[in-house]
């Protein structure tokens, strides 16, 4: 029965099967739906609240609330601004911590490794899944915000932070740019998470650790005496996405932010690799 159609042992197929399986594990899980629903609830709340009682000011980073009534796209930007310090990092932290630690905790890690899924390959696939989740979570917040905002407040030309008006399509493009930039920062946090996940067998502990890294980075960024440290902090440039909404676009902060994110991703992915490929799997 089996000998005839036996695959040639050692055949290497390049396939996205494992990545798809990984994504299904993330997006097919009810817990994660609940998390995404919370992320989507924020733009909903903002849109409804602003519709009911138009706002004054408030919040760190660029203030988009005031612009919402003029253009629905700003619901998306306001929601991203509100969620960036905690909600989005928390979501990414939960997913990232679960990658290796979750499998170790269930014991499925040993079975994955004996399939065999090579350890380097496993890390690559897991990190790809984290990045995809980070992008999806950001886009979800933006899409719900933009959709509801446009429905409640209408669209039309977008007034940028520098006062200039650009066509709606250009505004939408800039919103996508903001999403991409935010996703970069979250992907860097995801690399930290991947590393943390290789250190523990407790996904919850890993999540807490990653959130602490994120919050600590924000806190350190507020202490002026540590000014020398600020450019190296993971979150220092996170709120610079507002620069994409100026004309001309102010690239220096964005470029710095992207560089810091890339450096964090590289360093922590390497650390995760060094740790995971030499670790005893005894769970």
């Amino acid at each position: 029965m089996s000998a005839v159609d036996a695959p040639v042992a050692g055949t290497r197929r390049w396939s996205t099967r494992l990545l798809r399986s990984e994504l299904w594990l993330i997006f097919g899980r009810r817990r994660n739906w609940a998390g995404l629903a919370v992320l989507a609830a924020v733009p909903t709340l903002i849109a409804v609240a602003v519709k009911i009682s138009p706002p004054g000011g408030g919040g760190g980073g660029p203030n988009f609330f005031a612009s919402i009534t003029s253009n629905g796209l700003f619901v998306a930007l306001a929601a991203l601004t509100v969620e960036l310090p905690l909600f989005l990092p928390l979501a990414v932290a939960a997913i990232a911590a679960d990658t290796i630690a979750g499998e170790a905790n269930l014991g499925t890690l040993r079975y994955q490794l004996t399939v065999p899924v090579g350890r380097t390959r496993m890390l690559g696939v897991k990190y790809a899944a984290i990045v995809i989740f980070a992008v999806a979570a950001t886009l979800l917040v933006a899409a719900v915000g933009a959709g509801l905002g446009l429905a409640l407040f209408g669209g039309g030309p977008v007034t940028l932070l520098s006062g200039l008006q650009v066509p709606f399509a250009s505004g939408l493009l800039r919103l996508l740019g903001v999403c991409a930039y935010i996703a970069c920062g979250l992907a860097a946090l995801g690399a930290v998470g991947l590393f943390v996940s290789t250190l523990t067998e407790q996904p919850i502990g890993g999540t807490v650790a990653i959130v602490i890294v994120n919050v600590a980075s924000f806190v350190l960024d507020t202490i002026p005496q540590l000014g020398w440290l600020h450019p190296y902090l993971l979150t220092h440039h996170w709120l610079d996405y507002g620069d994409l909404l100026r004309d001309p676009v102010e690239w220096s902060g964005i470029r710095q932010g992207a560089l810091v994110a890339a450096a964090y991703a590289l360093i922590f992915c390497s650390a995760a690799w060094a740790r995971f490929t030499t670790r005893d799997v005894s769970s």
Partner: peptide, 10 residues
């Protein structure tokens, strides 16, 4: 598990 096995035919 099968998805991880490169020698397996999807």
């Amino acid at each position: 598990l099968d998805a991880g096995d490169r020698a397996a035919d999807p």
